[in-house]
């Protein structure tokens, strides 16, 4: 169970991964596993990575807070190999995403199912803007309209990333409430390992969260 602390710090401080507001907030360590090859959506993606190591980043630290209006999730992980760009065809950016079930029963292993969507918020090192997608199973992500704010800094060989969104969701995405509960997962793409799309480290089980009340 991860408790999303209620803070009255200003929005700017919460969007800063290096700000002191984050120091007292408990960090939960989550292990990341390789996504399975057998459930990748196409014959090529099922076979081509069979002998390749998937999920180069083994774990991530997660902190979370909300201010009654928005939720802020701070991710931190070790990645000595910083990839910020797509300057050549064989170069992929580092990335991370958090995912929530839109329908409670949604499976995490397959990014939801036809009748049980999930909503992921994504950061990529080559973009200033975050992205929200709704998925109904592997290979079915569709962008949803609401804004996801992201900020990232490098601290030594660590990435420190904030992913934030308004608590109230629209356009088929997840809605969160102060005092309410949900569950979430995390995925990290190590660009230097060619990770993108279905190849990433991910939390194989949902983690329960509760949002502290006012």
């Amino acid at each position: 169970m991860l408790v999303v602390a209620k803070l009255s710090a200003d929005h700017g401080a919460l969007m800063d991964p290096a700000a002191s507001v984050w120091q007292p907030i408990k960090s939960t360590a989550l292990a990341l596993e390789a996504t399975p090859t057998g459930t990748q959506p196409t014959p090529y993606t099922r076979t081509s990575w069979k002998d390749r190591k998937i999920g180069a980043v083994p774990g991530v630290g997660v902190q979370a807070a909300h201010d009654g209006e928005s939720i802020f999730v701070r991710l931190e992980w070790v990645d000595a190999n910083e990839n910020r760009s797509v300057e050549d065809n064989n170069v992929f950016p580092d990335g991370a995403a958090i995912v929530f079930p839109v329908k409670e029963t949604a499976p995490i292993d397959t990014m939801g199912s036809e009748t049980e969507p999930v909503n992921a918020w994504q950061w990529q090192a080559n973009s200033e803007r975050g992205r929200s997608v709704v998925a109904h199973g592997v290979g079915s992500t569709e962008p949803s309209t609401e804004a996801v704010d992201v900020a990232a800094v490098r601290s030594g060989d660590h990435w420190q990333v904030i992913i934030s969104r308004k608590l109230a969701g629209a356009d088929g995405s997840v809605s969160l409430n102060p005092g309410g509960a949900s569950r979430f997962g995390v995925a990290v793409w190590e660009g230097g390992n060619g990770e993108r799309a279905g190849f990433k480290g991910y939390t194989a089980k949902w983690t329960d969260i509760r949002l502290a009340d006012a």
């Binding site: 076979t47 081509s48 050549d88 060619g194």
Partner: peptide, 12 residues
């Protein structure tokens, strides 16, 4: 008829 892994050609 099984897909073969392929190399990603670079700009160079």
């Amino acid at each position: 008829d099984v897909p073969r892994a392929g190399h990603l050609p670079t700009r160079g």
